[in-house]
Design a protein around this nucleic acid. Structure first.
Lengths: 225, 225
DNA sequence: CAGCATACTGAACATGCGTTTAGTCTGGTG
DNA sequence: CACCAGACTAAACGCATGTTCAGTATGCTG
């Protein structure tokens, strides 16, 4: 596609102009959101705005190219983390959050989650699937309680985890320049204790609420149209 | 147009043009987001764009007026729900979600939460404070387990609840026209079971994770600067 | 060398936006 | 009546943005 003989894998500089524009776009999209002007992306890449159109056709296609590239990187990180050590780290997000070099990708993914779209949906689905994998393993190992609906539980955990992080970033860092690694650290510092407490000890002292709901769903009262 | 001496409190039609513009803005902001053009707000209100500026000075001041008005309505609903029956409904959001007439306010609040800003922050703080009030009452009544950090637990529950809803709306309804009452219903149908299950029975079978973390925070290892 | 494709640019174009301006209409007041 | 203040509008202004255009440079191929 791009370089005919050899291409440097993912170094910082001396990339193709096309790759430099793509990387600059990922940075800008992550930092300032998808409303960032094409001119700003071009400036960061050190090229003219017209060259962006020359290489990508339109801003929408540039964004699509960024999504595709981020998807590929995330997939690579994912498989790499699986082959390395799988017991320690929870999700791919954690893995991404720990390495400095992945900060731009984190920001980009956050903006996707904030805006919605295909990548956000697949990201959420993958998170839920990963959580379910871990939980199933925990259930088989006896460390995690079985659930009446393991899939729903995994989705709930993914939604609450990702959603609370999304909410926290939105509330605490309204500005365009966000240190995602810092806010992820704040988030875990603030919420690890209550989450662990709730996950190990529960919230209610008795089963009345759950039993009432189980009774309700097994024999629902009339359904108002 | 209408009677100068008496004005109807908050009826649908025959309002002041200023109030009609404000209501139209709340509708549009909630449905389409804060990027909605002033021209569209004016059209929905049946006035010219210039009149919007005449009455509010700028789009930003119009938004501020909307926030103030929504804040006042929410506060009224809140105090009304407290004086009516306080044991049944969880939060003000639920109360708002049930009444058809509040749908525009729901949408507006969602857009605030999605965008960030002062209203979003105070809304989150109030949610957390309300949750803590309910939990404290539950603890005193013996139905809720006490926490090592009740405030953090309340904030965690508020963040996960609001955040997961925020995420779900963003993922499932990318379009500009959202039926917020419907998505809230979907959200509760999908997540009530796993949430109740987790809140009553917990997630882990043993205390090792929590104990390890408590040991960790009471005597943290070296802090890397 | 000519010919040509490709990378690249400065300038302009088209559009949509918030806002301003100049003016009309209307109702109240002396 | 004259006068004026406020509600209200059509049209335009200024600006930012995505995109296009015309043209230049460069390197490859014959």
């Amino acid at each position: 596609m791009d370089s005919p003989s050899r291409r440097p894998p993912d170094r910082a500089e001396d990339l193709t102009a096309r790759a430099r524009i793509r990387d600059a776009a990922i940075d800008c999209f992550g930092q300032r959101g998808f409303d960032v002007p094409v001119r700003e992306i071009a400036e960061r890449a050190g090229v003219s705005p017209a060259l962006v159109m020359h290489h990508f056709g339109s801003k929408a296609k540039l964004r699509a190219a960024c999504e595709e590239h981020v998807t590929r990187v995330v997939r690579e990180v994912k498989t790499a983390s699986v082959t390395d050590t799988d017991a320690d780290h929870r999700t791919v997000l954690n893995h991404l959050a720990e390495a400095e070099e992945f900060a731009p990708y984190l920001g980009f993914l956050f903006r996707c989650l904030q805006t919605g779209g295909d990548l956000a949906r697949t990201l959420y689905e993958h998170m839920a699937a990963d959580v379910q994998t871990y939980l199933d393993a925990g259930v088989r190992a006896g460390t995690v309680r079985p659930s009446r609906d393991p899939e729903a539980r995994a989705r709930w955990l993914a939604a609450t985890g990702g959603g609370s992080l999304l909410l926290l970033i939105t509330l605490r860092h309204p500005g365009p320049d966000v240190d995602f690694r810092r806010v992820i650290r704040e988030w875990s510092e603030e919420f690890t204790l209550p989450a662990l407490e709730l996950y190990t000890e529960g919230l209610f002292t008795d089963r009345s609420m759950l039993d009432a709901y189980l009774l309700y769903v097994s024999d629902p009262p009339e359904e108002p149209s």
